[in-house]
């Protein structure tokens, strides 16, 4: 069974004659361990789709099944809990708490879940190459380091899905590739699904699948399998 399935999901803003269809009926299926890239021009509805899959807002109609359970119209309180338990977010802007050190960003999650996983903290931060910086505050890190901390934060509680909104926008090309490779690696290793919005075509080769959004219509990009 697919991890997440979208059935005829639509989103309209406004009502009646002035309503704008941001998303035409969309169907999509995502497997565990799959790294999906979402691309397309600005204003085409990519973020709208991402936020609905990430339970940040509700679709106007349609079903969003997570492990077979429809999460499309859950009330905010339940969606909030769902985001906390099952999802991770990597955002364009720094999504770190400015007054917590790198390691405390992860400890915060521990405190909220009443768990203690110091080994996991060390393993995760080490694998991302930021264990040395564990006692630094976000303001003391470079853009690339900050984004790697954000990745650590998103993956830390082992969510089923990761949603990334232009995670490499503030990085140079070399760093961007490293960050995306790391995300792909972690997704494959832990069987977590990743949905990433990006404008950077060079990054698409590191993903498993590319979908293009144009004016609220989602289409799959046919591409030649690389490597194999």
């Amino acid at each position: 069974m697919a991890l997440m399935t979208l059935k005829n999901v639509t989103k309209a803003f406004g009502r009646g004659d002035t309503a704008v269809n941001a998303l035409t009926p969309t169907n999509l299926s995502l497997e565990a361990g799959e790294f999906l890239a979402l691309t397309g021009p600005s204003g085409s509805g990519k973020t709208t789709l991402l936020t609905m899959m990430g339970a940040l807002q509700t679709p106007t109609s349609g079903q969003i099944l997570l492990d077979g359970r429809d999460i499309a119209q859950l009330p905010e309180r339940q969606r909030s809990q769902l985001r906390f338990d099952e999802f991770g977010f990597i955002l364009q802007a720094s999504n770190l708490v400015p007054f917590l050190t790198v390691q405390e960003q992860l400890s915060l999650v521990d405190r909220l879940t009443h768990k203690k996983q110091p080994e996991r903290q060390q393993q995760l931060l080490t694998s991302l190459g930021i264990w040395e910086q564990r006692n630094h505050y976000p303001s003391e890190l470079s853009g690339g380091q900050r984004q790697r901390v954000a990745i650590a934060r998103a993956f830390y509680h082992q969510p089923k899905m990761i949603f990334a909104d232009e995670p490499t926008a503030s990085l140079d090309a070399k760093r961007a590739v490293q960050v995306v490779q790391t995300m792909a690696q972690m997704a494959h290793d832990n069987q977590q699904a990743v949905v990433m919005i990006t404008h950077d075509d060079r990054l698409l080769q590191y993903t498993d699948r590319v979908m293009v959004m144009t004016d609220g219509v989602l289409t799959e990009e046919k591409r030649v399998q690389q490597g194999a």
Binding site: T48, L56, Q92, D165, E166
Partner: peptide, 10 residues
Amino acid sequence: DPLDAIGGES
């Protein structure tokens, strides 16, 4: 709104 955290289009 949690959506405020996500920049760009919405």
